[in-house]
Measured scan of single mutants.
Amino acid sequence: FYCSMCNVGAGEEMEFRQHLESKQHK
């Protein structure tokens, strides 16, 4: 899983979902 807007990668879907819901996500 990879967030191109934030340049952030996650190994698991749960981690990626937490990123999308976090304040760090743009």
Rank of each mutant, 00 (worst) to 15 (best):
8 V>N: 04
2 Y>W: 07
5 M>V: 14
16 F>M: 03
23 K>R: 04
13 E>F: 02
23 K>H: 08
17 R>C: 11
18 Q>W: 00
24 Q>V: 08
4 S>R: 13
22 S>L: 05
14 M>I: 08
17 R>T: 13
6 C>T: 00
3 C>F: 00
26 K>G: 14
19 H>P: 02
14 M>Q: 06
16 F>N: 09
7 N>L: 11
24 Q>L: 06
25 H>E: 04
17 R>I: 06
5 M>W: 04
9 G>L: 09
24 Q>S: 08
5 M>F: 04
6 C>I: 02
19 H>G: 04
24 Q>N: 11
21 E>M: 04
6 C>M: 02
21 E>T: 09
21 E>P: 01
1 F>P: 00
19 H>Q: 03
9 G>H: 12
6 C>D: 01
9 G>Y: 13
16 F>Q: 13
26 K>L: 14
18 Q>H: 12
8 V>S: 15
22 S>D: 11
24 Q>E: 06
24 Q>A: 13
15 E>C: 07
2 Y>S: 03
7 N>R: 13
11 G>I: 03
14 M>W: 05
1 F>D: 05
1 F>S: 06
16 F>C: 02
9 G>Q: 14
9 G>A: 12
4 S>V: 03
4 S>W: 01
8 V>E: 11
4 S>H: 12
3 C>W: 00
14 M>V: 08
23 K>Y: 12
8 V>W: 14
11 G>A: 07
20 L>Y: 05
19 H>A: 02
10 A>C: 11
16 F>G: 06
12 E>F: 06
20 L>C: 13
1 F>G: 04
22 S>T: 14
8 V>I: 11
21 E>N: 08
19 H>L: 01
5 M>R: 09
21 E>R: 02
14 M>R: 09
1 F>K: 07
23 K>G: 05
19 H>D: 03
13 E>P: 07
17 R>P: 07
13 E>W: 03
12 E>V: 08
18 Q>G: 08
9 G>C: 05
23 K>I: 12
15 E>T: 04
5 M>Q: 12
12 E>N: 10
22 S>M: 01
24 Q>K: 14
4 S>E: 09
22 S>N: 08
13 E>N: 03
25 H>W: 00
26 K>N: 07
1 F>M: 12
3 C>S: 02
2 Y>C: 03
24 Q>C: 08
26 K>Q: 09
25 H>I: 05
15 E>I: 06
11 G>E: 13
9 G>V: 06
9 G>I: 11
16 F>L: 06
3 C>D: 01
8 V>G: 06
20 L>V: 10
15 E>W: 01
20 L>K: 10
6 C>F: 01
21 E>Q: 08
15 E>S: 07
23 K>Q: 15
3 C>Q: 03
23 K>N: 09
11 G>H: 08
17 R>S: 13
10 A>L: 11
26 K>T: 14
18 Q>T: 10
17 R>E: 11
10 A>P: 07
16 F>V: 05
12 E>I: 10
1 F>R: 03
9 G>M: 11
7 N>Y: 07
15 E>Q: 14
11 G>T: 12
9 G>D: 15
5 M>T: 12
18 Q>N: 11
18 Q>F: 02
8 V>D: 07
19 H>I: 02
14 M>S: 10
23 K>A: 12
16 F>W: 13
9 G>E: 15
20 L>Q: 12
24 Q>G: 13
13 E>T: 06
20 L>D: 03
5 M>G: 06
19 H>E: 03
7 N>I: 01
1 F>N: 10
19 H>M: 01
23 K>F: 11
16 F>A: 10
1 F>V: 04
22 S>W: 00
6 C>W: 01
22 S>G: 09
19 H>Y: 00
9 G>T: 14
4 S>M: 03
25 H>R: 01
19 H>R: 03
6 C>G: 03
17 R>V: 09
16 F>I: 10
11 G>Q: 08
22 S>A: 05
11 G>N: 04
22 S>E: 07
23 K>C: 09
14 M>F: 07
20 L>F: 09
13 E>A: 04
17 R>F: 11
24 Q>F: 04
23 K>S: 13
4 S>F: 03
16 F>S: 11
12 E>L: 09
12 E>S: 12
14 M>G: 12
26 K>V: 13
15 E>N: 05
4 S>P: 05
13 E>R: 10
3 C>M: 00
21 E>I: 03
12 E>W: 02
13 E>I: 07
22 S>H: 02
7 N>Q: 14
1 F>Y: 08
3 C>H: 14
21 E>Y: 07
2 Y>D: 07
7 N>C: 13
8 V>A: 09
10 A>E: 10
7 N>F: 07
10 A>F: 15
20 L>E: 15
14 M>C: 00
4 S>C: 01
11 G>S: 13
1 F>E: 03
6 C>S: 02
15 E>G: 06
25 H>F: 04
26 K>I: 12
19 H>T: 03
25 H>P: 01
11 G>D: 14
25 H>L: 02
17 R>D: 13
12 E>T: 14
21 E>W: 00
15 E>Y: 05
8 V>F: 15
19 H>S: 04
6 C>A: 06
23 K>T: 12
2 Y>M: 03
2 Y>I: 07
7 N>S: 13
14 M>P: 14
8 V>H: 15
5 M>D: 06
21 E>F: 03
19 H>F: 00
11 G>R: 09
25 H>N: 02
3 C>R: 01
1 F>L: 09
12 E>R: 08
6 C>P: 00
2 Y>R: 01
11 G>W: 05
8 V>R: 13
3 C>N: 15
18 Q>M: 09
22 S>C: 13
5 M>A: 11
